[in-house]
Write a protein that binds this DNA or RNA. Structure first.
Lengths: 187, 187
DNA sequence: AGGGTGATGTCACACCATGACATCACTGGG
DNA sequence: CCCAGTGATGTCATGGTGTGACATCACCCT
């Protein structure tokens, strides 16, 4: 028998989601989470830089996925089309996880400090997309504008996707939202 | 003679800006700020909800200004045009303060936790603009998209404005950035 | 003159986050 | 078979953050 149960990180994530859902983020201490996961608070901070980070484990993967999708877009695609390809690539990661995404979204939405963390993840994403565009030869100012706008679209699309249980998959919603934006901007 | 020097809040803001500039945000404690301002740490928290907030005093004014500008747009203006009017209204608040804005921007950019706070202020702004659009009869989904996009434009425009000391005023930069976006989205 | 008001101080406390060091199952070489 | 090294975890100590409860005292009003 192992000295410790395996996958402490996973247990900490599960415990955190459960407790945040039950009592809310503020009313949950790191000690509570660690206790439910069967470790000490000190161990929590070995896996997560701070209390919030426990809910944002997959964000690096999301970023990689989108950047890869953007980079894979055909050379003939314009900046916004390339960004669109990146955004749509995220669909893969969330397929079949709409329910989990909704529960997590509810927790984040209920806590200002978690919303802050979510926002900076989105901003980091925008920077990554902007850099990837520049690698394709897009001018810096155009790249950052396209990336920022793209992330704004993604936020709206994700919100739409998560609140419409029977609706189309995420990539489809992203495409629809982009079309809506195109209708909007000339006027 | 008064028992306490007047304008403790202003002194706290000044002390914070000075110390954050000198040693950085993380290396500055609330106690340091309070000491330089001639009050106790407990008093700091009576004026500001937390350590970050000391740098975000004017954000309520900014929001009010933009919402007023949006609401004042002619009824014939489309959603995006109304948002544009709101964004441009902010120019008034920053006129003649480009230098201060740049110094503040440098402090915020240097600290992840301050960037988080900045982002949530922008998100709050987007919500306020979206609500104002809905009051004009704009559909909810269109309103949020226009507001999110508008705030993305504002961020880019503010960045351009702050980094170009001799450039045109903020409202002008906002208009230019919006035009850039219009060029971008059809393609 | 006396009571109310409001800004501040003082004290106590829980939580967050991190450094330093100890513990002990597991692993691989001799 | 044993033993030194490794790595995940625990334990302890500490500094900073944020808040509640209550005391203080110049100022204002009547």
């Amino acid at each position: 028998m192992a000295r410790w149960e395996p996958d402490a990180e996973g247990r900490l994530r599960d415990a955190a989601m459960a407790l945040f859902t039950e009592r809310g983020y503020d009313a949950t201490t790191v000690g509570d989470i660690a206790e439910r996961a069967g470790v000490t608070a000190r161990t929590f901070f070995r896996y997560f830089a701070d209390k919030r980070e426990v809910l944002f484990a997959g964000s690096d993967d999301l970023e990689r996925l989108m950047v890869t999708g953007l980079t894979a877009a055909p050379a003939s695609a314009g900046p916004m089309q390339a960004v669109a390809a990146g955004l749509c690539a995220s669909g893969e990661m969330f397929a079949g996880r709409r329910d989990f995404a909704r529960r997590r979204q509810a927790v984040v939405a209920a806590s200002p400090v978690l919303r802050e963390r979510e926002l900076i993840k989105m901003a980091t994403l925008a920077t990554a997309l902007s850099d990837a565009l520049r690698d394709r030869g897009v001018a810096a100012e155009v790249a950052s504008l396209a990336a920022e706008t793209g992330v704004a679209v993604f936020r709206v699309a994700f919100e739409r996707w998560v609140t419409d249980p029977g609706g189309p998959d995420l990539a489809e919603v992203v495409r629809t939202t982009l079309a809506d934006l195109a209708d909007l901007t000339p006027g």
